[in-house]
Design a protein around this nucleic acid. Sequence first.
DNA 1: ACCTGAACACCGTTCAAGT
DNA 2: ACCTGAACACCGTTCAAGT
Lengths: 237, 237
Amino acid sequence: MAKSTDTRRRRAATKPALTRQIVIDAALAQIDAHGVDAFNLRALADRLGVYPTAIYWHVPNKTAILAEVAAAVFRDVAPPRDGRAWRDYLRLVFHRYRESARRHPNVAPLVGAQLVGNVSIDFDFVEGILGALVDAGLAGAKLSAGYNAVFASLIGFVIQEFSPMPEDDTAQWQSAVQQRLLGVDPERHPVLAANLPLLANKAFVLRWQNGSEAPLDAAFDAFVGQVIAGVESLRDA
Amino acid sequence: MAKSTDTRRRRAATKPALTRQIVIDAALAQIDAHGVDAFNLRALADRLGVYPTAIYWHVPNKTAILAEVAAAVFRDVAPPRDGRAWRDYLRLVFHRYRESARRHPNVAPLVGAQLVGNVSIDFDFVEGILGALVDAGLAGAKLSAGYNAVFASLIGFVIQEFSPMPEDDTAQWQSAVQQRLLGVDPERHPVLAANLPLLANKAFVLRWQNGSEAPLDAAFDAFVGQVIAGVESLRDA
DNA sequence: ACCTGAACACCGTTCAAGT
DNA sequence: ACCTGAACACCGTTCAAGT
C-alpha cells in the first residue's frame, strides 16, 4: 500500500537497498523467529520488502544463505590464546560456543548439516583448538585424533542440547514423551526406571524441552571436564 | 504402460500391496541412493509403483517417514549387557553404532535433527549406556551427566564422520576445500600450517571426503578411549 | 548494477471417488 | 480397507524486462 510505495521510491533514490550482509542478517532473524524448517525465500523477501527474486542478485541460493547464517552465529567463538593455559582455553571455547548456540537455538540443527562444506567454521577456531592440544602435549596422529574428538564432542553436545523440539503439536508431543517415560518397564529397563526422576527432562532423548527452556549447565560443565580428561589420557596413552 | 497395468491388477487380486514397513524400507533405499535432501514422496511412490497419495494411508507425513528410517538404521545397536565389563560394553556399542552409520551414511544427517522427538532411539540403547555407567561407578547427578556426555560424544563423531559432503558440484567443491587448505597462512594459523599433511582429509572441517570414502578408524578408536577416560575422571571427581 | 514481474517445475498434503 | 485421481497451496529458481 502507501508504505510499500514509499519504501520503493526511497530505495530507488538511494543506494543498493540490499546487500549480502542484509540478506544474511534478515535470514538469521527469520530463523530465530520461525525456525529452519519454516525458513523460505518468499517470507525472507517479505521481511526485506523486495521481490523474492531480488535475493538472487546477492546470494546464489538458499543453501548458501543457511551456510552463511550458521557461520555468522559461530563467528569469533575462538578468541586469541594469549597466555591462557590449554585447559582454560578449551573451557573458554566450549562455553563460548555453547553460548552462541544458546542465543540462536534454531540454528543448532544447521551445525550438523555439512552445508556448503563447513565453510561455516573458520580456521581461527581450528587453530585455537590445535594450539591448545599441542600445549597439552599432543603431536602427530594423536594431535589429529584429539582434535577430532574435541570437535565431535563439542558439536554433539550443543546440537543435542539446543536443537528445537518438534514445533507443530508441541504440547501434545511433550505429553507423549512424558507418557512414554512413565511407561518404562522396570523389568526390561531397570536402571532407567530406577533413575527416572533424575533423568527426566535432563538427559538426552528423555527430554521434552530443549536447552533454551531447560539448560543443562551442570552437565555441560562436567562434560568439559571429561573432554579435558580424555585429552590427557590420549596424551599418556 | 503394460508393466504398470499388470502390477495394478496383481495387486488388486492379492493383499494390501503396501504396508508401513514396505514404505519405510523403500524410503531407506531411496535415501541410500539419493540422499535425504533429494528424498521426496513422489519419487518414493514411483519406486513403490503407487500414487504418491497412497503413502498417506500408511504413514502420517514425510517427517514420520524420516524418523522411522533413522530408527530402523540404528535399531538393535545396543545388545544385552551379558557379562561384559562396562568398558568393553561401551566400546562395543560405540563401534556398532558407527557401523550402522557407515552402512547408511546418507542417514547420518537425520541423527542430529530432533525429528519426531528421538523416538528413533529406543530405551534399550539408553538402558545399555546407563547400565555400563552405573557399573563404572556413576550415580545421581554424575550418572545423568555421564550419560549426556557419552551420548553427545557418540552422535557428534558419527554425524561429522559420515554426513555426506555437498553432492551437487562435488568435484569443484573438493578442489575448493583443498585450495583453501593450501592457502593457509602460517603467520595467522601456525599450528594448522605446520600439521597440514597430518590433518588434511583426516580432521573434521579440513576434509573433502566423508567417512564412507575416507574412514577415520584410528581416530575413532582413540576417541572411544578418551570417552572412557572421561567417564573415569567424572567418577573420581 | 540492481530490482521487478512473470513464469516454470516441483513438492507435500487434502479430499473425494473408486473398488 | 486401501488405492486412484484431481486439485491446492507453496516454494526454489530462471529469465526477460525495467530503471
